[in-house]
Design a protein around this nucleic acid. Structure first.
Length: 113
DNA sequence: TGCTTGACAGAAG
DNA sequence: CCTTCTGCCAAGC
């Protein structure tokens, strides 16, 4: 009996990777979504951190609008100030505290259910 | 083989 | 509002 009930097999890791990229590619211009939402739709709700890992290390992610992915509080990725610039260029307004106004710009992939 | 490190989330101080 | 801690899980060293 394996003690890691929720870990991914190499096969599942590959599918998760593909799903993450697929979802990110569908985020509409001028909107944002979160790591947790992407992970949940990919089938692994507890792997939000893995989503960030894919976006940071996968060469494929560089061709996608990965700047439209922020954390649930609307904060941008640490050490990547350009992300805010890219979002503002699409019309996304930031609140005074430096966070994205999630109530206004959050997008969830309901259409692909 | 075992401890540390995150493009996270959520709660606590 | 900001920092820190815990839970999470794969990757690095």
């Amino acid at each position: 009996m394996k003690d890691y009930a929720d870990s991914m097999s190499p096969e599942q890791a590959r599918l998760f990777h593909d799903d993450v990229l697929n979802i990110v590619s569908q985020i509409p211009r001028g909107q944002v979504t979160t790591y947790g939402i992407i992970a949940a739709w990919a089938g692994w709700p507890s792997h939000s951190r893995m989503v960030g890992r894919v976006l940071r290390y996968s060469p494929e992610a560089a061709t996608l609008p990965c700047h439209r992915v922020v954390n649930k509080e609307g904060r941008t990725a640490p050490g990547w100030s350009l992300q805010r610039t890219l979002l503002e260029a699409e019309g996304v307004m930031f609140k005074a505290n430096g966070h994205v106004d999630m109530q206004q710009y959050l997008w969830e992939p309901e259409e692909m259910k």
